[in-house]
Computed example of a mutant assay.
Amino acid sequence: MQTVYNVKLPHAVYGGENSIDNITTILKDHQVKRVAMFTDKGIHDSGLFDLPEAAVKAAGADYYVLDEIPPEPSYIAVQNIVDHFKAIGADMIIACGGGSVLDAAKLASVLVTDEYGVKELLDEPGRAKKCVPTILIPTTAGTGAEVTPNAIVAVPEKELKVGIINENMIANYVILDARMIKNLPRPIAAATGVDALAHAIECYTSKKANPFSDTFAMEALDLILNNIIPACDDPEAMEAKNKMQIAAFYAGIAITASGTTAVHALSYPLGGKYHIAHGVSNAILLAPVMRFNAPVCQERFAQAYDRCCHDTDTICQTTNEKAEWLIEQLERIVRHLEIPTSLKEFGVQPEDLDGLVEAGMQVQRLLVNNMRLVTAEDARNLYLEIL
């Protein structure tokens, strides 16, 4: 565990019933004249976009909608969006969507300048400076992108996803309104929810774990383990959905305070080369990586059991039993939510292993956080396990 640590957070976070309405006050307080509204076609067409749009209209601000953001975009696609954004001359960004939308908006907020673009930030993320304030509104309970300083983009030439990290991309304002996730399709709710689950358990077992990250990671883990299934299964389970949205936010703070580990590191090539959704690739790897880590993480797994197991019929006594309970819960949740547990249906072949291992081992910024050393042979065995 780290002995020196910090966490950087948005200026303000609004949650609870009708929290979207705070947009109007924020825009008026900042005397905003023109807003760039980032979203995607699915959100726009579903009617969810109507809520923030109405709040912007109530503030009397002009606005321009950018909804051509593809899922899991490449840095080239994001640069195209940024170029459109720069032409608008907006003095506030409002982003309403999943991780891809929020990440694109965060990058746009530091890319008004012509001195550098997204490609340059892949190599020098530290040069980015906040140019336009942001309001981020997640429409999934998963990525935590609304609170992190990270933006993930695909790099096609490397068949890999890369994280651009700069604290200037932390949102000025975050709005957590459970209405935005009420009608989220079950497969998306499941995949993004398990992404948040991975954030929580990875950050809690990271080499960079610290009192700040532990506080948020453990609360997120407790909320997710006990709410993800009803939140995904029942469209009317608004209390569970609200708890999942808060949990995803807490797990995002945990990322900011410590960092994810081998699950995310080994999942990036799966998204970069095979275009497997980020949450799905994390779900496939989650239990196998945690079993791999168990020899050095048992104590932490046992602490998670003590906090998160509220079933009075389940009584585990030993550290080993408690650790096994946690890993079994991860497996049970992924199975129940009908997320794939194998790469077969995505066309991954045994002959692809060398490329996967090579790409996965490149993600050293996350692998170095893993409590147990991951060698190339370990990575190969983990990929073999999910083929």
Rank of each mutant, 00 (worst) to 15 (best):
P235W: 07
D233K: 15
L225R: 00
A191C: 13
Y250V: 00
Y250T: 00
H199W: 12
E219L: 15
A190K: 13
P230Y: 10
A196Y: 08
P230R: 08
P187L: 12
T205S: 07
A251V: 10
A254V: 01
P235T: 11
K207P: 02
K207Q: 14
T215C: 15
A248R: 04
F216V: 07
A254E: 00
A262M: 14
S206T: 04
L223Y: 10
C203W: 04
K208T: 11
S213I: 04
T215Y: 09
E219Y: 02
K243S: 07
A196W: 15
N210Q: 03
N227C: 11
A190P: 14
T261P: 08
A198V: 15
Y250E: 12
I253G: 02
A198Q: 10
A191Q: 13
P230Q: 07
I229E: 09
S213Y: 01
A248H: 06
M238R: 09
H199F: 10
T261H: 12
L221T: 02
H199M: 11
I224Y: 05
D195N: 12
A262Y: 06
A262Q: 13
A190D: 13
P211F: 00
Y204K: 01
P211R: 01
S258Q: 04
N226Q: 03
K241V: 10
A237P: 08
A196K: 11
A240R: 03
L223S: 10
D214M: 03
A240Q: 08
I229W: 01
A196T: 13
A220F: 06
A189Y: 07
A190F: 12
I246M: 14
A217K: 03
I246N: 07
M218R: 08
I255R: 12
I229P: 02
N242K: 14
E202V: 15
N227K: 07
Y250F: 10
T192N: 08
I253V: 14
L225W: 00
D222R: 10
T215L: 15
V194D: 05
G252W: 07
P230L: 06
P211G: 04
A196E: 13
A217D: 12
E236G: 14
A200N: 05
